[in-house]
Design a protein around this nucleic acid. Structure first.
Lengths: 146, 146
DNA sequence: TTACCTGCAAACTCTTTGCACCGCA
DNA sequence: TGCGGTGCAAAGAGTTTGCAGGTAA
């Protein structure tokens, strides 16, 4: 996590390239760099963070290309775009499985909560057909436990 | 509990004035008009809707005053400001009790879900201190039942 | 009278778009 | 060569702010 400015070790450039190709996304140097960062290194990042990282780790990229790339990754299902109530910025989540979120209101840190950590029983009547459920738990996380 | 914040639509100007006064908000003609609309008539409205309503029902009000008034009502706890993932606009909710929301993705209609309709068990460890929980259920509501 | 509210327009933030240029298939 | 990706700047949406003038206590 402190290595944030380095290329992540989880996936090679070649692997990222294959992932993009499998999703029908044409590879370019900019897209590879952005994808590698958001898919491996950053779990919940904003456009601004991607741009800042890219400015330090990539020869040249425009903000429009960052937006464009992230939007494409969302479209093909490699990322989820979150709009949470505490911020006006979109947060990109590389966990595309069904899960919930916890926001530490003191630090601003956002963490994933596995969907099996919440037991959810609704007694809505049958006229409600549920497609998805967004849950954001706000609070604080004490220091003694990660 | 649902009755606590459900101002009857017959609420008089005088009553609104008293509510504002009780919250330490100075009454003006604009504030009374906006407050009456959002506290009585509209359950989930946007700034735009308030402005449109006011333009038709009030001699003159600026957009800035609408924003200002709604922000004040949120500050004093008479309204809740919601930012939901399907829209960039803030939605003002006159139900300030703890409750959840259901979004009909076909109609865009937002409805309240009483907190007792959802049984919520989290098995987060003790390092998580929960202050509040936002829940947005997305789906569709069938027509045969309101 | 004094403090505060209002209206207007400009500013601000985040995101998208239009367009010329460039690179890769 | 041609399609489409990139960069830049401008535009756009939603919201806030600065300020001059007006209004209520």
């Amino acid at each position: 996590m402190n290595e944030a400015n380095k290329y992540p070790s989880c996936l090679t450039t070649k692997e990222i390239e294959n992932i993009l190709k499998a999703s029908g996304v044409q590879s370019t140097a900019q897209r590879l760099a952005v994808s590698r960062y958001v898919l491996c290194e950053a779990s919940h990042c904003t456009v601004e963070e991607v741009k800042d990282w890219a400015d330090q780790n990539f020869p040249k990229i425009s903000l429009a290309t960052v937006y464009n790339t992230l939007n494409i990754l969302v479209e093909v299902g490699l990322l989820k775009a979150l709009k949470l109530s505490h911020s006006d910025k979109v947060i990109y989540d590389n966990n595309v499985d069904n899960h919930y979120h916890f926001l530490d209101e003191q630090t601003g840190e956002l963490s994933d909560i596995s969907s099996d950590k919440i037991d959810f029983k609704t007694s809505l009547n049958e006229s409600f057909k549920i497609n998805s459920i967004d849950v954001l738990i706000k609070g604080t996380k004490s220091i003694n436990k990660v």
